[in-house]
């Protein structure tokens, strides 16, 4: 029995805050307390809960609201690790593992990928699997912004998936493998910048590095607020989605930076969206493992944007952009993409 579970006093805050419980329902997903605290008391439920366990999007909201500061998400990931060690992958996760084995990416590589940019620049840009293969516009916009801001950078010739999806699958072995490879491939740098908040968080918590998310770099180092903007030809109402791994693990300050940068752009009006900080469903391996759950959360996000009368959702995270776009209804773009298009 997990000893931390003793501190739970059934205040229900985590269950009320959990996006999957709220959108999918307790019927379908036992929730953070159900999985992390209560399940250890009934080992016979492990098989039945197994399915349930992979619906968690690892958004960390539960741990954030817990008054006793229980490491609920961490415990859910630990349970996934122990299941993985016994049974190997959940069906939908097998593809992720195959892609890692063959391509060192968590998804199928695109036919054409952006070229690596070797140089002796001290700033290392790590695009991540999605920005390289699924949404190359993110890679291009980031490169463009760094160039506009006169920040020389390089992209490693070889790199592996950061490993964050492997943590969500529960595969400690492959996680260790990609981490060791990456630390070799990175081969000396002064500063590391990433497009994906998942990568950012993972580099900090698992690799022990000190990366910056693109927005932090742009705001604090590159001075993006001083870059000249293009005049605007039409007004656009933008809802800023707050990615879980940005707001909750990297820090609230990044969201504040993003909001400030957006508001300075001509023609851009930031509208307040309800539940802006609620998970979009893109994380936790749920897109691969339980795509219907990921879609339900994405739809809820789009509904919030519609109610705020937003023309556009801007999300500073490739996974968020990808998942919210699956729901359709309101156009969703990455932050760097949006910003780059509006700067000279």
């Amino acid at each position: 029995m997990a000893p931390f579970a003793n501190r739970c006093i059934k205040c229900d805050s985590c269950q009320k805050a959990c996006p999957v419980v709220t959108i999918e329902g307790l019927r379908s997903f036992s929730g953070p307390r159900g999985l992390a605290v209560d399940s250890s008391r009934f080992p016979e439920d492990a098989e039945a809960l197994r399915d349930n366990l992979y619906k968690c999007t690892a958004c960390f909201r539960c741990g954030d609201v817990c008054p006793a500061r229980l490491p609920l998400t961490g415990q859910i990931m630990a349970l996934r690790r122990s299941i993985f060690a016994k049974d190997k992958a959940l069906g939908g996760h097998a593809r992720i593992l195959a892609n890692i084995d063959q391509h060192r990416r968590s998804i199928e590589p695109a036919a054409r990928r952006p070229e690596a940019k070797p140089s002796d620049a001290k700033l290392l840009y790590f695009p991540g699997c999605i920005a390289e293969n699924r949404l190359p516009i993110i890679y291009q916009s980031t490169a463009s912004l760094l160039t506009k801001g006169k920040a020389a950078f390089r992209v490693p010739e070889r790199w592996s998936c950061c490993g964050a999806p492997l943590e969500k699958v529960g595969d400690s072995e492959r996680l260790r493998l990609v981490r060791e490879e990456n630390l070799r491939f990175f081969d000396g740098f002064e500063r590391l910048v990433t497009s994906c908040p998942g990568c950012t968080t993972h580099f900090i918590q698992d690799y022990g590095l000190e990366p910056l998310h693109t927005i932090e770099l742009l705001y604090e180092v590159v001075g993006v607020r001083k870059l000249p903007a293009l005049p605007s030809h039409r007004k656009v109402k933008v809802a800023l989605h707050q990615p879980c791994h940005l707001a909750r693990t990297v820090g609230q300050h990044v969201i504040d930076y993003a909001a400030e940068i957006l508001q300075r752009l001509p023609g851009v009006r930031l509208v307040e969206m309800e539940d802006a900080d609620r998970c979009c469903g893109g994380g936790g391996g749920v897109v691969a493992g339980h795509p219907d759950v990921a879609l339900a959360l994405a739809k809820a996000k789009v509904e919030s944007a519609k109610r705020a009368k937003a023309d556009l959702i801007v999300a500073p995270c490739p996974f968020c952009v990808m998942n919210i776009s699956r729901a359709g209804g309101v156009e969703t773009v990455d932050f760097t993409n949006f910003l780059d298009a509006r700067l000279k």
């Binding site: 003793n6 501190r7 739970c8 006093i9």
Partner: peptide, 10 residues
Amino acid sequence: EGDQLRQEVL
């Protein structure tokens, strides 16, 4: 005492 006491307070 401890956690059960906190529970009882709630």
